[in-house]
Nucleic acid binder design. Structure first.
Lengths: 361, 361
DNA sequence: AAGAAGAGTGCAATCGATTGCAAAAGTCGA
DNA sequence: TCGACTTTTGCAATCGATTGCACTCTTCTT
């Protein structure tokens, strides 16, 4: 089982049978049959002892487990998967935006992917990554119909909730990282974006900002919800403060142009709610270029609370998405679905983290 | 094959044989035997036609492939792996530093992990992630001896090259991301760190810097090589310029303290070579806090050229490590090893990317 | 003491793809 | 047309773990 291709042949196998039996006595058991011979029981009993299934006496079980430990024997996961009708693999699909490579370097998604991979591995499952450009409506059904995975996690729904719905109608073990949407029939895990938007905006208002800018693309569902929270806070706590929205491209150079152009015209803006930490960093760049002091002249708050938010100048205030809890929930929910249990969409509570970009250090 | 556990029983299977044969005529074939029945050939012929192996007439092959396409049939990857004596899985091990969680959020490693996952999936393999704290010398042998993977990629060797060597002596399909070291017997892929260190330092010298600081921990092999390059450049191109080394902690808050304390004492420093972009960002923070203008008073260059290096204020000059080429090489080399071929360590050529942190925009 | 119920174990079939080797079919040359 | 050679195909064993069901042994109840 070392990926050496097929080395055993029918005829050779037969003629070397006695040699194999003798070898098994001196060497590490290669399969359950070998260990069963050493233990003086059947392979079925070894299987049961190691898997903890069925009726088996505790004396027999301990004896077999001790032998397995002594020989450092581990049953074949591949054989187990085949017998139990599963693949032992979880698919993770990352739908990319139209510019194929950009989304894939997003630090937020990179981190979420790593956390998911960690948790899947802890459950003894492998991960199969698929990066897809959602050009045709079959991008998801192609993945789930492959029979290659026992379940699927989608990182980001973009504008594809209809496609995801159509697959969720016949494929149950599917969970999505992203906002909870009205028409979705699939299960999702994501932050309460509306609340996060409200919190960010209230923070700026409470610090005296009167002219607020919202930086982000509302055609993305999560950003749309953050915009709703932005509007909620302006309406309820604004006291005459005004807000405006700037769609910002996710390519850094284009984002810098978008934001620079805006700041050249809106020189009175005193508060910026950037809907990701990366957009916030670009805003800091454009502000410094224009000699706008942060937080003195303009306060900036991001969203995500990435690791790098602490390392900017000034350090970013941000709405924190608890990615660890998110990854926990995604994987828990998925495995409950795989086990045939019922699950519910999870909405994570965002937290505000204040740093130097909105408050003086 | 939906992870529903075992639903077929010996007796029931026999009695429903005729029902299954009839159903196979109207429904999607569930295995090669079903498709063989439809095609009027044996399962062996179907297997050969779909796998492209053995002698098979082109007419028969095309016929079978057309049927497989028509029914959207895909052979069981699990069964194939079992028969071919492989797992279809590649292990990726991330040895963590002593503070367990920090290394795992490093944007550099997150990105490399994602790129590797992508390339492994493109080759039809699954990925099994292992995050390990190298407390005992068995951390790696435990992974490779598990029989759970067909090969292993280690992301980062830290001070563990002896452990890796001891495993590489008996386990061939193993490649490492990291510096090429003198005593290593394993195969590695990494940048020419010494050259990168030289390039960064020469850049600072060419811009007139006379008092240079090196920020990084030389007990890490890669950083040590960058330090050698730093010294090379000072010796060869220094013309009396002087350099000093500051070990910098990888926890952001501690790093900020390390760097701040240094800058408070070394107020004449005019060039900083930070051995990662994240350390460089922390240096920018500390410099701004002290009203040191970048690049006017102090020039700063990082290492890695992460995505976020473009979004800092000012944008970071950096030594670029081509992560895409690195991931390509790691995966290529590993699969060559799995196939029993000979391979050689790969050293990537770094490139310098100059931005606002060393040059005026 | 006898019968019933429960605990524990082993046999053989199963999961689904692959392939060595023998048999069948096809091709070519005398 | 026949024989030699090559190509193609099918059979059955294999990979290694799991488990339904029958059997044996042990324990409990009447």
């Amino acid at each position: 089982m070392g990926g050496k291709g097929v080395k055993k042949v029918g005829g050779a196998e037969k003629s070397s049978g006695s040699k194999k039996a003798a070898a098994a006595k001196a060497q590490k058991p290669q399969n359950i049959q070998d260990l069963a011979r050493i233990a003086g029981v059947s392979a079925a009993t070894v299987s049961r002892a190691l898997a903890g299934t069925g009726n088996i006496s505790s004396a027999t079980r301990e004896k077999i487990r001790a032998l397995a430990h002594q020989y450092d024997f581990r049953p074949s996961n591949t054989a187990r998967n085949l017998r139990m009708g599963r693949t032992g693999t979880i698919g993770v699909v990352v739908p990319l935006g139209h510019e194929k490579t950009q989304h894939f370097s997003d630090p937020f998604f990179m981190r979420l992917l790593a956390l998911i991979a960690d948790r899947i591995a802890e459950r003894g499952y492998d991960l199969l990554l698929s990066k897809v450009v959602p050009h045709d409506p079959e991008w998801l059904s192609r993945q789930v119909d492959s029979g290659r995975v026992d379940g699927m996690i989608i990182i980001g729904q973009s504008n594809q909730s209809d496609v995801i719905n159509s697959v969720a109608r016949y494929y149950d073990p599917l969970v999505v990282w992203g906002a909870a949407l009205d028409e979705q029939i699939y299960c999702s895990v994501g932050s309460d974006n509306r609340l996060g938007g409200r919190m960010a905006t209230e923070h700026l208002l409470s610090l005296g900002c009167r002219k607020l800018a919202f930086f982000g693309d509302p055609s993305v569902p999560e950003i749309e919800q953050r915009l709703e929270g932005f509007r909620d806070a302006l309406r309820d706590k604004g006291n005459g403060a005004v807000g405006t929205t700037l769609p910002v491209h996710f390519v850094p150079e284009q984002a810098l142009e978008d934001i620079s152009g805006f700041l050249d015209m809106a020189d009175k803006v005193d508060g910026i709610f950037a809907t990701s930490d990366t957009i916030a960093m670009t805003a800091l760049q454009a502000l410094l270029d224009r000699r706008r002091a942060v937080p003195k002249d303009v306060k900036v708050i991001g969203f995500d609370d990435l690791e790098i938010a602490r390392r900017t100048v000034p350090a970013l205030s941000s709405i924190r998405q608890d990615l660890e809890a998110g990854a926990d929930a995604l994987v828990d929910l998925l495995f409950r679905k795989i086990a045939g249990k019922s699950v519910e969409t999870v909405m994570l509570k965002p937290q505000i983290v204040t740093r130097g970009s909105t408050t003086c250090d």
